[in-house]
Amino acid sequence: MSEMEGGDSMKGIERRERMNLTGGKKEKWPMVRLGDVCDILDSQRVPVTESKRVKGPYPYYGANGIQDYINDYIFDGELVLLAEDGGYFGDKTRPIAYRVSGKCWVNNHAHVLRPKQDSHLDIDYLNYSLMYYDVSKLINGTTRSKLNQAAVRRMTIPLPPLPEQQRIAAVLDHISSLIALRKAQIEKLDMLVKARFVEMFGDPVKNEMGWDLRTIGSFANVVTGATPNRNNSKYYENGVVPWIKTGEIEAGYIYNSEEYISEMALTDTNCKLLPVNTIMVAMYGQGKTRGQVGILKIEAATNQACGAILPNNKYCPEYLYYHLKLEYNQLRGLGRGCQQTNLNLSIVKNFPIMDVPLDIQQRFIPVIERIENEKCICIQALEKLEIMKKSLMQEFFG
């Protein structure tokens, strides 16, 4: 996004062509600075002190959303919060701005924006225009990226007529609601699978059915991979081998990868081609990543941050996959390290699993197949909606 230049009666405005939703006619929409159309209420935000951190009805917001609920508030109204630091800067899939309404508290990690009364700026439109804004050229800081208030004031957004803003926001609201519905359906299907697992085998954390326990390493081989040298372009150019990283394990059933490596990378490094139905365990990773599990539905390699439990005829991959999913907190909690808490191959190999006979494990497969087929339909629909939303966001906001 370019900065504004002065000159005409609309000071600091430049124009950009945008498609009019009503009939495909191209119009030029002015680009305006946030500092000209928004009140920036940063002076009112303050970090919450321990004395005020009492559980209550008011949301306490930070850079990425609600941090807590407390018994006090400093804002009351319709606002857009924009991450100052700690946000998802550079991540095109997660928003750096979000809409809030009503009484709330905001800490000093989020800028607080409100359209000026005479700006003719719709607040929902403002939120969408900032949601995936590229702030990479505006942030400063050597060890931690920070979007300061001066940079926020210089940020520019396209400003169509108010009815057009409202129409754009309504379209994006509708798609967002459909995306949320599909995600809720997928979550319910996941919960259904977990419920059927517990019904058939019991809760693996409690083991109320009294199954004997066996370590993973006693019935399966556990390996890891490697990261081919990034400086050797031959390892990545025209790559044909899917290469899985920990962030992709969250998908659960893994059908593709973000990156591919070459056959040369397989032969020259410690990367191994893993078979279908390999169980993947995220051993490293920020946030919720460590301890998550997935199951390969393609042949793929992996980096050293993933543990790979190889399939064999001694266990059912679907049984082990959902067993580990239900014990996410237990597995994650075994992480070791001073500077960064990680799992390792020894921890994964020694993790105990309920020793359910293989023929009983296999009764779980038809249950999984039915639910996974429904889930696959929902995921495909979700992907189409997300592509549609991304395309519209690009069209409207560049």
Rank of each mutant, 00 (worst) to 15 (best):
E299S: 15
Q286K: 11
A305G: 11
V276H: 13
I261D: 03
K288I: 01
V293D: 14
N303I: 11
M280G: 02
T267K: 07
V281N: 10
T289M: 04
I279C: 04
Y260G: 05
R290D: 01
T269L: 11
M280D: 05
C271T: 04
I261L: 11
S262R: 00
L273Y: 04
K297G: 05
G291D: 00
L273G: 03
M264Y: 12
Y260R: 15
N277C: 10
K272E: 07
Y284L: 09
G285M: 05
I261V: 14
I279W: 10
A301C: 15
P275I: 03
I298P: 05
I298N: 08
G285N: 00
K288L: 08
Q304I: 05
R290F: 01
I309W: 06
A305R: 02
I298S: 09
I309N: 10
K272Q: 13
Y284E: 07
V281T: 14
L273D: 02
L273N: 14
Y260W: 06
G285C: 04
T267D: 01
L266P: 09
A301H: 05
A301E: 06
E299L: 14
M283T: 06
G287Q: 03
L274A: 03
E258A: 14
Q304T: 09
Y260A: 07
K288W: 04
T302M: 11
G294N: 04
G294A: 10
T269S: 12
A308F: 04
E259N: 15
E258V: 14
G294K: 03
C306G: 05
N270Y: 07
S262T: 15
A308E: 02
A265G: 05
A308Y: 00
A282L: 02
V281D: 04
M264I: 15
V281I: 14
C271S: 06
G294W: 00
V281K: 10
D268Y: 05
I298V: 12
I295H: 11
R290V: 06
Y260F: 12
A265S: 03
L266D: 03
G285P: 01
N303C: 09
R290W: 04
A300N: 01
Q304K: 09
L266Y: 03
L274F: 11
K288T: 03
E263T: 14
E259W: 14
K288P: 02
I309Q: 08
E259M: 12
A265V: 11
I309R: 00
L274T: 03
M283N: 01
V276K: 15
L310W: 03
G294F: 05
V276F: 12
L296E: 05
P275C: 08
V276G: 07
V281H: 13
A308H: 02
N303F: 14
G287S: 09
I309H: 02
I309E: 12
I309D: 02
Y260S: 12
L296M: 14
D268R: 02
G291I: 01
G285Q: 01
I298D: 04
G285T: 10
P275D: 08
Q292L: 07
I298A: 12
A305C: 11
N277H: 15
N270F: 07
G285L: 02
T267S: 08
Q286S: 11
T267V: 12
E299Y: 15
V276I: 15
N270C: 12
T278K: 07
L274H: 13
T267G: 00
M280K: 00
A301T: 11
Q286H: 10
